[in-house]
């Protein structure tokens, strides 16, 4: 209870300081709108429906990208996780690459796929791919050897071993990677939009920035954060469902 109180007070104090600075106009005049102004701009964006086509575009890009990321990430992850030689050869460079800023590859996608949705889908796919492949590799390599021996000792078929041992043991860690992947795909799509685009949440933010509609820019960022948080919460809930499903599917 007490930490919650501290957190609430902190957020309120932060808001109050922000508001005071914005109102006084002493610091950051013109570039730090008041909270009321930001909320009003957000309300206009949301209630007029102006933001929804853009939200849809971003969701479209991120989800198509994510599907590709998941397909390739899981396939490669299972391959690396079950083939020790391949894993030892390719995992180190994969891990190195995972920690580099993928946005730098964006120009390639712009050239090959154009400035429309497809280039952001590619960004989302490449970025979301890494957490998924890394988690899947670890998950499929980490399936308990003893479980596999037990399954073989009772004469389970390959299919049975996959559905009854691999699948339930891997579901959770892979779902965990997918959860990270979705977040990363979403951010990557928006980053792409911020750089070059003609629609999407990132486009709204960048357009208001370029036209110096500052409150609208803050509002766009705020709504984007809220949306990302909502996706995160939804994925967490889904992951919890996965947990019980993993146990049931093993029976």
């Amino acid at each position: 209870m007490k930490p919650l109180l501290i957190q609430t007070v902190t957020v309120l104090v932060f808001a109050a300081v922000w508001e005071t600075v914005a109102e006084s106009g002493l610091l950051f005049a013109g570039i730090l709108p008041g909270i009321g102004e930001i909320l009003r701009a957000a309300w206009v964006l949301a209630s007029s429906g102006a933001i929804f086509p853009h939200l849809l575009v971003t969701v479209h890009e991120a989800s198509v990208g994510f599907v590709f990321a998941a397909l390739f990430g899981i396939a490669l992850g299972v391959l690396l996780g079950t083939q020790p030689f391949l894993r030892r050869v390719f995992e180190p460079p994969l891990l190195y690459f995972a920690a580099t800023p993928k946005i730098i590859l964006y120009p390639i996608f712009l050239m090959l796929l154009g400035a429309k949705l497809e280039s952001k889908m590619a960004m989302a796919a490449v970025s979301g791919f890494f957490p998924i492949v890394v988690n899947t590799t670890i998950a499929s390599a980490g399936v308990n050897r003893v479980f596999l021996k037990v399954a073989r000792s009772v004469g389970a078929s390959r299919l049975q071993i996959f559905t009854r041992v691999y699948f339930p043991s891997m579901l959770l860690p892979v779902a965990g990677g997918a959860r990270l992947g979705i977040g990363v795909s979403l951010v990557a799509a928006i980053l792409g939009e911020l750089k070059v685009s003609n629609a999407g949440l990132g486009f709204i933010i960048m357009q208001s920035f370029n036209h110096f509609r500052i409150p609208e820019m803050y509002a766009g960022i705020l709504l984007t954060f809220l949306f990302a948080a909502a996706v995160n919460v939804a994925m967490t809930l889904l992951l919890m469902r996965c947990r019980s499903f993993a146990h049931e599917s093993a029976r």
């Binding site: 977040g183 979403l186 951010v187 928006i190 980053l191 911020l194 990132g202 933010i205 960048m206 920035f209 820019m217 803050y218 960022i221 984007t224 954060f225 990302a228 948080a229 995160n232």
Partner: peptide, 11 residues
């Protein structure tokens, strides 16, 4: 940290 803080860069 779990939020997409990189998107704050316009601010």
């Amino acid at each position: 940290f779990a939020s997409p803080w990189i998107l704050l860069y316009p601010i």
